[in-house]
Amino acid sequence: MQSMDDASPTKWHLAHTTWFFETFILRTQSDYREFDSEFNFLFNSYYNSIGRQYPRSRRGLISRPGMQQVKDYRDHVDRELSKRLECDEFATEAAELLQVGINHEQQHQELMLTDAKHMLSCNPTWPTYRDDPFDSAATPSDANRWIEVPAGMYTIGHGGDGFAYDNESPRHSAHLHATSIATTLVTNGEYLEFIEDGGYKRPEFWLSMGWATAEQNDWNAPLYWHQRDGRWHQFTLAGLVPVEAAWPVTHVSYFEADAFARWAGKRLPTEFQWEAACQIIAKSSDTSLEQEPFADVLMQQNKCIHPTRSPDGLMGAAWQWTSSSYAGYPGYCPPAGAVGEYNGKFMCNQYVLRGGSVATSSNHIRDTYRNFFPPEARWQFTTIRLADD
């Protein structure tokens, strides 16, 4: 099923991630025999230099191949890759693209969860994805705690030998003005105050495009919030539950995050201020920035994939909107060839999010990771962290 243009059916995700390995690695081998030539059209997402793509908005109409044939396709590609990786020369040549492919598949694992949640939310009987309990009870946030980021020069971007996407480089210097960043995420309770104070009806808090979008779509609360029996409920992967005041607010757009910040007398941090705050925490504390529950950990613990508390550091719980438009760093150049379409072509009309979410794999996220979505997007686990001058 496909519930909206931005979401894709699970079967499509499974086939597309396999298509990536086949297209960028196996098809370069002269002796490789492709599984089905039609798949290059059906499961190419947006790589124009590869060829035509089936329309994104109609992926839910791909009734054939069926799920079993998609599984056979995955088995075919896995076998071909495993066999060829026994050759040291092939393994060396393919290593970089294999890493990209694995991280690409982790991105789609996250999308499968968020897309399935949106699809289930369209059913008025509120079905569950997994009827798992939520993580440990949240504690009330301490709104007075702030990370001080002094003015000065900071080194931004990925460094070292670990994997990173091309949009995390080049590493460069950025001068930042002094700022403070909240140690906790905005909670449902705080956001409810914004709603009750007429936040969705007061245009003075909204960007012009945000006000028009909220009016056009009749927004009056975060996505998945519903009034029932006189109180707010929110749809989760474990079904419909009452809104818990202490949980971080989720599924808000950039427009809503920015409006809330203005209402609170604060603002959203830039992505560079956010990354500098991570560096300050790492130098001053023994707290790991990656100890908060992520998707793989929560599923192993049979816990619901939903944020119930702010992380100890800045990483985890939900993707945090920044005020930074998504653009290339100084000196950025997309990789040569079709793989260069992975990130660079989207550097327009998008905003950067940082920190990962409960739907992200724990070994997929880092403090230089740059996610990006258009400002009206709400179906991902997105939240608000405030900044102040």
Rank of each mutant, 00 (worst) to 15 (best):
S208L: 08
A264L: 01
G316S: 13
G265L: 00
Q300N: 13
D218K: 14
A282F: 01
C278E: 01
Q227N: 15
E292F: 12
E292W: 06
A317H: 12
W225V: 08
A261F: 05
P242C: 04
G316I: 09
A259G: 13
V249H: 02
W247E: 15
G313S: 15
Q291S: 14
R231W: 01
A317D: 15
A238D: 02
T213N: 15
N220C: 13
Y224F: 09
A282R: 07
C304G: 10
Q279G: 08
T213M: 13
V249I: 13
S310E: 13
E271G: 02
V241T: 07
E256H: 05
S284A: 13
Q234D: 11
D296Q: 03
K266T: 06
W219G: 09
T287Q: 10
F260V: 13
F294A: 09
L298S: 10
R231T: 07
N302K: 10
W247Y: 15
T270Q: 00
P293T: 02
E292T: 10
T213Y: 14
P248N: 03
Q300H: 08
A246K: 11
D258T: 08
A238M: 04
P222R: 08
R309C: 15
Y224P: 08
P311H: 07
W211R: 04
N217Y: 12
K283M: 11
A259W: 04
V297L: 12
R267E: 00
S310Y: 10
E244Q: 14
V241F: 06
S284F: 06
W263M: 04
N220P: 04
Y254P: 09
A212W: 02
Q279V: 02
I305Q: 07
P307K: 03
G230R: 03
G230V: 07
L223H: 07
H306V: 04
S285D: 02
M209A: 14
Q279N: 02
P222L: 05
S284D: 10
D229Y: 11
W225A: 13
S310W: 10
A264C: 03
A221R: 12
A259T: 07
F205N: 01
W232S: 08
P248R: 01
N220Y: 10
L298M: 10
Q234H: 15
M299A: 15
V252A: 10
T287H: 08
L207S: 12
A276I: 01
G239K: 03
G239T: 03
